[in-house]
Design a protein around this nucleic acid. Structure first.
Length: 433
RNA sequence: GGGGAGAUACCGAAGCGGUCAAACGGGGCAGACUGUAAAUCUGUUGGCUCAGCCUUCGGAGGUUCGAAUCCUCCUCUCCCCA
C-alpha cells in the first residue's frame, strides 16, 4: 500500500486524525467516505477538498465512497450554522444527486474493474425506511445525550448567545450522520470518514457508535482537513457574484479559470498542493521559479490550468486562456475586430449580455441612455455619467467619454459591442434584427 | 405582567427645529501605481431633463413658515425586574 496519509500530509491536507489511521491504512486497503450535502445540483469549489481527498484515496489504492447526504440534507447540519435550515424535497434531492455524480466522475473512477472502484451512495436510501422507533431503539440507545451535548456544534447553538436555540431535528443530525458511518462500515466495510475540520464532531460520533455497537476490535477512523482559508481573511470560494460552481451554466469556464488565476501568491502555494495532482518535486520546482519571478504568476497559471482542464476540458481551457489574453493581455480594438463570431461568443460566453434592436441602434442612442437604460451596464444615468467622467468606460477596448457617439462602425462582426466598466467588468451588447 | 432603551442610506454609527441628500468609519465602484496580486494614494457611492429639481432618516397622522429632529397612535428590536 502506498502511504495515503503521507500524501495528504505533505500537501497540507490533514488537520486531525484518529490514532492508528496511518498504520492501519498502510496495511489494509481501506474504504473511506466523504459526505456531500445535495443542497444544489452542482458542486462548488468548497466541495473540492473533500473530492480531492477521495481522489488521493483512490490513487493510493483505497476505495473512495462519495456519500450524498439525502437524508442528512433533509435535516441540515448545525455545524457552523446559526440558523435552522430549509428542508429539501425528495424530488429535488434525486435531481441533485444525479448532477453531483456526473461532476464527481471527473475526479473519481466509478467504473473501474478493480476492487477500489469508486461508488456513490445516498443515505436517503437506507434512512428512508428506517422507522423512528427502530432508530431510537437500535441507535439512540448507544450514545448518551451527555456525549452528544458535549459537541461544539451543539454547545454553540444551545448557549445563551445564540438566541434561536436548536430544534430536536438538528440535534439528532450527528446521530444520523454517525449511523451513516455504521451502515457503511457494515455494508461496504468502510472504516474511514473524512471531511473538513468542522466535521470532526460529527465524524467521531460515528467512530464512537461503531465502537459501541461493533465492539472495540472493530476500529474505525476519522481524518479531517483544515478549512481552506485565504490570506486576506475573506471566505474561500466566493466571489462578488457568489459561489464558484463546477457547473458551466452557473460559473462559466472563463470565470472559473479567472478565479484561480486571481489567487494571491501566498494562497497559490497552498492551493497548488491541494487542488492539483502535481508531484511534490514538480510543485517545489514551481514554487522556486515563482519566487524568482512572482509577476509571471506561474503558480496561479498552473493551478488554473490544472483545475480548469479537469473540471471542464482542454478546449474550454484554451478558450478561457484566449479570452484572458484578449481581455487582459495586449488585447486591442484591432484584435477584437479580427475575431470571427464564433470565437467572439466563445470568449464572452460568461459575460453578461443584452440586446438592442438594429432599428433602435440606427436611429441613434445617446451614450448615457445606452449605458444605463438600454443595456443595464449601469444602474442609473448618474452612475454612468460619473464613470464616464472618471475615465472608467471603454467600448471595444477603447476609452470613451460623455460626448462619444455610437455608430455602425463600432460594431464587431456587424452586430456586437463590447462594453467595459473599469478593467475587469465586461458586457456584450448584441444588435438584433 | 412592570420598567427602560432604540429603529437613520449597503453595513456600523453621528445628527435631536432651518445652513441635512444627512458627519465619520467599513464595504462597493472607478482612477493612479502594479503582476488581472497585496499595500498605498485619489475620486465617487439616492434619483433625474444635474450650478437646479424630485424622493428618502421604521409606518400612519399632527404641530410649525419650515421636521431625521417636536407631539399622538401603530409596528418591530434590545435590555432590566417579576
Amino acid at each position: 500500500m502506498k502511504n495515503f496519509v503521507e500524501e495528504l500530509r505533505w500537501r497540507g491536507m490533514i488537520h486531525d486524525m484518529t490514532p492508528g489511521t496511518e498504520e492501519y491504512m498502510l496495511k489494509n486497503m481501506t474504504a473511506g467516505y466523504v459526505g456531500i450535502d445535495p443542497t444544489a445540483d452542482s458542486l462548488h469549489i468548497g466541495h473540492l477538498v473533500g473530492v480531492m481527498m477521495l481522489k488521493h484515496l483512490q490513487m493510493n489504492g483505497h476505495k473512495p465512497i462519495a456519500l450524498v447526504g439525502g437524508a442528512t440534507g433533509m435535516i441540515g447540519d448545525p455545524s457552523g450554522k446559526s440558523q435552522e435550515r430549509n428542508l429539501l424535497t425528495e424530488e429535488a434531492l434525486r435531481h441533485n444527486e444525479n448532477a453531483l455524480k456526473n461532476q464527481l466522475a471527473k475526479f473519481l473512477d466509478f467504473d473501474s474493474p478493480s476492487k477500489n472502484s469508486a461508488i456513490l451512495v445516498n443515505n436517503y436510501d437506507w434512512m428512508n425506511t428506517f422507522s423512528f422507533l427502530d432508530f431510537i431503539r437500535d441507535i439512540g440507545k448507544h450514545l448518551t445525550v451527555n456525549y452528544m451535548m458535549a459537541k461544539d456544534s451543539v454547545k454553540k447553538r444551545i448557549s445563551a448567545e445564540s438566541g434561536t436555540g436548536m430544534s430536536f431535528t438538528e440535534f439528532s443530525y450527528q446521530l444520523v450522520q454517525g449511523y451513516d458511518f455504521l451502515h457503511l462500515f457494515k455494508n461496504e466495510g468502510c472504516r474511514l470518514q473524512m471531511g473538513g475540520s468542522d466535521q470532526w464532531g460529527n465524524i467521531t460520533t460515528g467512530t464512537e457508535l461503531i465502537r459501541r455497537k461493533m465492539g472495540s476490535d472493530n476500529e474505525a477512523f476519522a481524518l479531517t482537513c483544515p478549512l481552506i482559508t485565504k490570506a486576506d481573511g475573506s471566505k474561500f470560494g466566493k466571489t462578488e457574484s457568489g459561489n464558484v460552481w463546477l457547473d458551466p451554466e452557473k460559473t462559466s469556464p472563463y470565470e472559473f479559470y479567472q478565479f484561480w488565476l486571481n489567487v494571491s501568491d501566498e494562497d497559490a502555494e497552498k492551493y497548488v498542493k491541494i487542488f492539483t495532482l502535481l508531484t511534490q518535486q514538480q510543485i517545489e520546482k514551481l514554487v522556486v521559479e515563482h519566487r524568482e519571478a512572482p509577476h509571471v504568476r506561474l503558480l496561479q497559471k498552473t493551478l488554473a490550468r490544472e483545475i480548469t482542464i479537469r473540471v471542464h476540458s482542454e478546449s474550454e481551457y484554451e478558450l478561457a486562456l484566449a479570452a484572458t489574453e484578449i481581455l487582459f493581455g495586449k488585447g486591442t480594438t484591432e484584435m477584437l475586430r479580427s475575431l470571427n463570431e464564433k470565437t467572439l461568443l466563445g470568449i464572452f460566453a460568461g459575460v453578461p449580455q443584452s440586446e438592442i434592436s438594429r432599428k433602435e441602434f440606427m436611429e441613434g442612442i445617446g451614450i448615457l441612455d445606452f449605458l444605463s437604460q438600454k443595456t443595464g451596464v449601469f444602474k442609473s444615468n448618474g452612475e454612468a455619467r460619473r464613470m464616464l467622467k472618471d475615465n472608467g468606460v471603454s467600448i471595444n477596448k477603447a476609452k470613451i467619454n460623455e460626448d462619444y457617439e455610437l455608430s455602425i462602425n463600432d460594431l464587431l462582426n456587424d452586430q456586437y459591442l463590447l462594453v467595459q466598466k473599469g478593467k475587469k467588468n465586461y458586457f456584450l451588447v448584441k444588435i438584433t434584427g
